[in-house]
Design a protein around this nucleic acid. Structure first.
Lengths: 222, 222
DNA sequence: TGACATAGTGTGTCTGTGACACTATAGTGG
DNA sequence: CCACTATAGTGTCACAGACACACTATGTCA
């Protein structure tokens, strides 16, 4: 009774690169599963909340702070860690592709992997990733998490590409734009993105307007 | 580092009685918070999965088995338990009102409380309950959890009452019936509920048909 | 047997969704 | 400088689901 256990947090970190959804994996430096790719994570310390532990891991393992972070699910099969009884509280984080991974303790071994074509993962991390992807897809439909995967300024085409990458299907350009327009949560800037052919209008996400929609129970249909 | 902690599961058990949503609370028999109402729960044992622990608590504290159970969220503020560091993985369960609580170890002290007018709760259990209610409301809109709160045979009026009790608002009778009818997940039985005035048609939930709807991405709008 | 209580039923309007193709604008290179 | 090219941007129609709304049907009970 009153068995004590170790508790870890594992953080699934998503981003979009070249139009594909990617996840940050580290190469394990210590046993078990040494050399194998894994979701970044670590033990929860004595005096920190779970969320704090996840934020710390983000900072330590990827040099990231100020990111979208949300608790995902807790996993606790007795044999999920060969070292003994370890419960893990999984989180998922979203970062924009313009964020650079700065050197954290294990940053050298951290790399982005496309969500299709994943390598075999340590522990039950494949299960966790599958769960995270499902959650991300669901969240996309009734929240604004999509914006978290873009820089502050973005074009509608870029925004649509994020949705398509995550949902894994093409969306109609006109319908997509109409919905965004109706929601009124995008503010056009006095600026255009040049470099392609025809320059594109840049937008910024206006969180305040979204809060009002939430209160009214209006969701995001895609 | 590698601090060990105690891990508990707490199970928020909902039911509907007399048309109101109720939650099962026990009176704590031991410190801390002795004598105060709390969500039933207990420590996760060395060799059991989190889900198993939640099922065991359901059995031990309320004499219930074979119920709808789902992991809710994990709570881990360092000071949430005065005895020391305790992480809790919260679950929520739904049971039909015809289920009797059989004598478990603490069954004598377990009682149903209406979700409006809750007493002050031990630990951070008020937070957990609030979270559970929110989740239940959301789930109601895109799953069939509503049926878990009714006996196997039920009338449409009873089903509607469940939705109204949880959502906290009146629904239109004709619209409600039309939606259920379109979904085709209810099978009318060759039986009526007598005792009121005009006898009412009894129905049974047909899970198989719902699975097909899920595959097509059809949800539950209310 | 009549009053009462609860069960059960249909329509019209509005709003949101999905399918669909062309014009506008700047860049690039001959 | 002009033609070609690549990407941005724009409107309509048909259909389905959602909501508002009021009366009839059937059994019970006094």
């Amino acid at each position: 009774m009153r068995t004590t256990m170790k508790v870890t947090v594992d953080v699934v970190i998503f981003t979009i690169q070249e139009g594909v959804l990617k996840v940050l994996l580290i190469k394990r430096a210590i046993p078990p599963f040494i050399g194998q790719p894994a979701i970044p994570g670590g033990f929860v310390l004595e005096d920190e909340d779970l969320d704090q532990a996840a934020l710390r891991e983000l900072r330590e393992e990827a040099g990231l702070s100020d990111v979208y972070l949300e608790q995902l699910y807790s996993f606790g099969k007795p044999d999920r860690d060969p070292r003994g009884r370890v419960i893990t509280v999984a989180y998922f984080a979203l970062i924009s592709p313009d964020r650079k991974l700065t050197a954290g303790s294990d940053a050298a071994t951290a790399a982005w992997h496309p969500m299709d074509r994943l390598p075999p993962l340590a522990f039950d991390h494949a299960t966790i990733l599958k769960y995270a992807l499902e959650r991300l897809r669901n969240k996309l439909e009734y929240t604004t998490v999509g914006f978290q995967l873009l820089p502050e300024k973005f074009t509608l085409t870029e925004l649509q590409a994020v949705y398509e990458a995550i949902l894994g299907k093409k969306l109609d350009k006109r319908n997509f734009r109409r919905k965004m327009s109706v929601l009124g949560i995008l503010k056009p800037l006095r600026e255009k993105r040049r470099g392609g052919q025809r320059p594109a209008q840049l937008y910024r996400f206006v969180a305040a307007r979204f809060e009002k929609l939430k209160d009214k129970g209006i969701l995001f249909p895609f």
